[in-house]
Design a protein around this nucleic acid. Structure first.
Lengths: 154, 154
DNA sequence: ACGAATATGATGCCAAGGCTACACTTTCTT
DNA sequence: AAGAAAGTGTAGCCTTGGCATCATATTCGT
């Protein structure tokens, strides 16, 4: 987790700016978003595994994500720490209410991003691939614009 | 740097698949892209500082990126290691030919992404903000689609 | 020209996210 | 029911990208 730089006080001397349209602010925001990305991916995947009748076991998760089970377990530990999931030894992983909500948002966002890319003319494979990275950086405002755009196309 | 998992042989037993359209493959690709993002941002910024008549000193870079100078220096070290920049103590940073090319590509991509977002109806501030994160995940194929899309709008 | 201010560089620390290796449960098969 | 197979958890290591702090170098102002 990136800590605030020491000179943070000076920088936000201007009474706190939620949008901070500076270049530094944009990079900070991008970094913040990035630290959520992994949690989002795990939450979405766990929800998907449950939805398709399966269990969300560390090995399943690891296989789907292309990492080792040890890596998956560490991420699951972080999910638990953040209150997004629960898990008991040898008993699979379950999302909390908050985790479920996150997963739902992430899934909807993913679909919307893919749809927009397709609408713009991006080939299916590339759309699917790029969406995987892009989706985490799409703000709510942009998401709404995406929805309007698609609706405009009918 | 993510090393290959031990079972890499099995996974790529299918004679090497450059696009690998599996979910695991997509996540791997997204992770790979992410490790380039920082270099791209630094290269673009250094080029911009030079282009606008300034020097690219670690402190300037740090300020623009919203990090401490120590962090900037470490990134510059990595840029040098990757052959993208040169720097001598107390004398500012310069891009190599390869670094310049990277910066140019990154800048063009950034502009295109912002333009597409704007065309879709994303408000300027959000477009600028989200592009900062999105751009790194836009593949060449998608970029071409973006260009066609914009041309189609005249 | 010299002292203060500022920039630089080097260290050392931290968390995230990868990995391997090894030990221990569970589950499956016979 | 017992042994093999598969899954799980823990520990230790690595790199990246943040941070603070400290000592040094450079630059600026008088």
């Amino acid at each position: 987790m990136p800590r605030r730089p020491a000179d943070a006080q000076q920088r936000q001397a201007a009474p706190n700016l939620p949008a901070e349209p500076t270049q530094a602010g944009r990079f900070e925001q991008a970094r913040r978003v990035q630290s959520m990305a992994l949690l989002e991916d795990y939450a979405e995947l766990i929800a998907d595994l449950h939805a398709t009748g399966g269990e969300a076991r560390p090995t399943d998760i690891a296989r789907r994500l292309g990492v080792t089970h040890a890596t998956a377990i560490k991420a699951i530990t972080r999910l638990k720490r953040e209150g997004l999931a629960t898990a008991r030894p040898y008993r699979g992983v379950f999302l909390t209410e908050e985790g479920e909500q996150l997963a739902a948002r992430v899934k909807a966002r993913h679909l919307l991003v893919v749809e927009v890319l397709r609408a713009i003319g991006v080939p299916p494979d590339a759309a699917e691939q790029d969406a995987e990275g892009i989706e985490h950086h799409v703000s709510d405002i942009t998401l709404q614009a995406f929805a309007r755009f698609l609706k405009g196309l009918k």
